[in-house]
Structures are given as C-alpha cells and as structure tokens.
C-alpha cells in the first residue's frame, strides 16, 4: 500500500503549500505582536470601557476554538464589514487576532515584571507618560517577552493548517489535494508531518537560545 515513489513525489507537491504556511505564520504573527501590545496597553493604561471590552474579548477569544473563529471571520465578519478579502487574508487575520489574545497576556506579564522603581524614577524626573512607556518601560519589557512570543509563533505555525477549512492551500491542504489526485493519502500526510517536525525543531532551538539570552533566572 505504501508507495515510496508517491512519498518522494509529494515533497515537491507540498513545497508551494509551505510558502503559504510561512506567509500566513509571518503575517499572522506580526499582527499578533502588534495587536497584542495594543490590547495590553489598553488594559494597563486602564482606558475606561475600552479596557473592560478588551478584557472580555481576550477572554472569550482565548476560550473558543480558532477553527470556529476562522469560519466566523470568513463567513460572517467579512461580509458584515462589506469587504471581500481572499481566504488567505481573512484566515490570517483571524489567526493573528486569536494569538493577539495570548500575546497581550505575555506583554502584560513583561510589563508587570519591570520594577516599580523604574516608574517612580520616571516620575521623579518628570518624564511624560508616553515617554516613560516608550523610553523606559517597553524597552525593558520587550526583551523579556521575546522567548514567549517565539513560542507562540511556533504554535501559530502549527495551527496555520486550519486555514484549509476555508480553502487555503497550505502544506496540509496541498497534502490533501495530492492524496486526492493519487488516490492515496498516507504518503503526503506523512510528508506533511515531516515538514512540520523539521521546521519546528530549529525554531524551538532558536527560541531556547533567546530564552537563555533574555530571561535571566
């Protein structure tokens, strides 16, 4: 049943999917980094109302399945907003939004880890609030959160295949198509698994290096 020929053939068939997976991970991650910081700041600065809404949204999104959110974004939010993005962009934004709810907590922990004395010294020097954030607090908080952001990026990479549910042809989507074309699915799915394994390993080693460099125990 197992065909080595199909197995090797599936390699090149999956490559275009790999780029889609990469693109979705990178774009989704950038969105998650930025949006997560915005969420964290809204909560830290305690913007009235907005802060509570953000808290509720973050809790809700974090407690419900990404797959349903991807559907919801594609089939409901998009038409409602009157826009027509491609499945790729719609799914990537849903992915980024989902993970922003995790990164916001990461930023929050990083900001909380900056000693209170740094705020007090900034007050004693009369530094404006904005400058205290951009010049003192965030430059100290962000290096601390890089390893955690890295870990979430790897998680995102492994969740991008969910985009195939709205028709994005990523690695797994490509494996599915390949399987359907050749009436044999096991080779391509195995190859897809190997793709993930081979790519996850070096990135997680990189994250561990980051950890050692930035998180002092």
């Amino acid at each position: 049943m197992w065909s080595w020929e199909l197995f090797w053939d599936s390699f090149s068939a999956l490559l275009p999917g790999l780029w889609i997976t990469f693109a979705a991970t990178v774009c989704g991650a950038l969105l998650a980094y930025v949006l997560g910081l915005v969420f964290a700041l809204i909560r830290q600065v305690r913007v009235p109302v907005l802060s509570q809404i953000t808290f509720g949204l973050v809790e809700f999104i974090r407690s419900t399945p990404l797959l349903v959110q991807i559907f919801f974004f594609y089939w409901v939010v998009q038409p409602w907003m009157g826009v027509q993005w491609s499945a790729f962009w719609s799914g990537t934004i849903a992915l980024g939004l989902h993970y922003a709810c995790y990164t916001s907590e990461v930023y929050r922990a990083g900001i909380d880890a900056v000693p209170k004395g740094q705020w007090e010294a900034s007050t004693a020097l009369s530094l404006p609030r904005r400058r205290t954030w951009t010049g003192v607090i965030l430059p100290q908080a962000i290096p601390r959160v890089l390893p955690a952001l890295g870990n979430y990026t790897i998680s995102m990479f492994k969740e991008t295949p969910l985009l195939l549910a709205i028709g994005v042809i990523d690695i797994v989507g490509a494996a599915k198509d390949f399987g359907a074309d050749h009436y044999s699915v096991e080779e391509a799915y195995t190859m897809a698994g190997i793709f993930f394994l081979v790519l996850s390993f070096p990135s997680s080693i990189l994250v561990r290096r980051l950890e050692r460099r930035f998180v002092k125990h």
Partner: peptide
C-alpha cells in the same frame, strides 16, 4: 509537539 495537530488527526483518521 513538533507537528501540527491537524496533520496528526488526518494521519491517524485517514492515513
């Protein structure tokens, strides 16, 4: 932990 959960699902359910 190194592979995608969806790949694992497809692999075990389909392959």
């Amino acid at each position: 932990r190194g592979t995608s959960e969806l790949v694992q699902l497809f692999w075990i359910a389909l392959a």
